[in-house]
Write a protein that binds this DNA or RNA. Structure first.
Lengths: 257, 257
DNA sequence: CATCTAGTGTTATTTTTCTAACATTTTTTT
DNA sequence: AAAAAAATGTTAGAAAAATAACACTAGATG
């Protein structure tokens, strides 16, 4: 590899550093050389960059890693979540300050935020931050702390105060378990503080769960069901949630998405 | 789109929900139908999924977005940074707690961290967090706050105290300008607090800059040059840095990478 | 029961991408 | 400055993917 080749590679890698792809023809135009030269440069890049169907990208881009172990990831329900989030999104209004919980349930919601002029999102999840960080119309506040791989989120107990200092408008909370008697729960204890703080400060509290979570209790209980104003769920779970009787508390409204 | 088509799409979207790609042939095998049927399903998915060179992926994958505005990111020097970071990495020892600054200069350093058994990284940059978050051998602490698109980093003045509560071992700092008289500077004022706090608490302070920064003063001055123990730089900048005379302070050692 | 139709499979054609070979230009060496 | 080497460009052919056309199948309809 010579100097100019290295220069071109560096230039392309700069362009692609934040992820993304560039077509071979664009790359060639950008560097002012032929497509063949770009191909040769990439071949000499020692595996740093690769082509995928004519599109150039950084090889370590995790988003392009082929999925091989197919059996592993079954059981999550992308389309169901998409539908739930469509329901949840109907509560968002222009200018809102939203608290977005960690997990995968609420991820589709983030793709629906670009329809608003101006929003503020508060989160403690890395995946949420990444999705929101690319939106120019959304002000992002990330609550930091120690990173937990398991939930792709940050923080622990101290986060409680940090959340309460923020003027959160509507809180979108997800959960790993919802039990009518025991309450709402998640897997990890470090999620309890931010969730509880959000529930206390938010003006409007929205629980987003699908039917598979119903009747389940997970290690970290963080709220009673009636701590929420609305539960957004699917048709399967709605009747069981509505069947609650004799509660002296004001129950959350059940919304079927 | 019929029921079975929807089922197949949901299955594929489950598999690809966390990013990643699957080849058309694999997808066909997985669903037990022909490749043509998968193509038709995807075409009917209303833009939710796309092909890129025979590989199937979610269309809203942010990493998939082609890079068009090429002119913007010019002028940075990937290979030069790689070399600088190799020099910088030589200061890292097993078990260290590192402060990693924002910007692109130190990104190559993160790829070198997987050689250690156990490290802790403290940062306030989203791109750093993403890179480190995928390493299982590194404990990650992210300093949160308001997100700044310009530098892909979080926070402001309050961060000062947050940094000082952490036991930072070695601080790797980057800069947009280094002037022998005026000191070391960056573009954005919100970077000043974390940088200064890291300089005050860290046991060992390493400035990593290439020659293009030398003699330049940026809006936000954050330190004198002799606040650092070492300056890792390239051969072009080294002589000019070493030419300093008559300083009553202990000057930083200049390391050529 | 025959017919229709949506869904799927098969085959063929076009387009695009990939690879290899060779020609040309530029740089380095003698 | 000539020769050699390296880098780049051009062209041609092979491979792969995208598209289109047509054939088959199973459930729905009259």
């Amino acid at each position: 590899m010579n100097g100019r080749s290295a220069m071109r590679l560096a230039r392309l890698q700069d362009v692609l550093a934040g992820g993304g792809t560039i077509h071979l023809s664009e790359a060639a135009k950008l560097c002012g050389v032929s497509e063949m030269t770009i191909r040769r440069d990439v071949a000499a890049s020692d595996g740093a960059m690769t082509f995928l169907g004519g599109h150039l990208m950084m090889a370590d881009n995790p988003q392009f890693a082929p999925v091989y172990d197919l059996d592993e990831q079954q059981g999550s329900h992308y389309l169901a979540k998409q539908r739930l989030c469509q329901g949840a999104a109907s509560f968002i209004a222009e200018g809102d300050t939203l608290f977005i919980d960690c997990g995968t349930t609420l991820m589709p919601l983030l793709g629906m935020l670009d329809e608003f002029e101006e929003l503020t999102v508060v989160t403690y999840a890395l995946n949420v931050a990444n999705a929101v960080g690319s939106l120019s119309n959304v002000r992002l506040v990330l609550l930091g702390g120690l990173y937990h791989h398991s939930s792709q989120s940050f923080g622990s107990g101290e986060m409680y105060d940090a959340v309460r200092r923020l003027g959160i408008n509507k809180a979108f909370i997800s959960a790993a378990g919802v039990d009518l008697a025991r309450g709402v729960s998640c897997f990890h204890f470090h999620e309890v503080a931010p969730k509880q703080a959000a529930l206390e400060t938010a003006l409007y509290r929205i629980l987003v769960v699908d039917a598979s979570k119903l009747g389940i209790v997970r290690p970290a209980l963080f709220a009673e069901l009636d701590a929420f104003d609305v539960v957004v769920t699917d048709a399967k779970a709605a009747p069981r949630l509505n069947a609650r009787v004799g509660s002296e508390h004001q129950p959350p409204r059940v919304m079927v998405a």
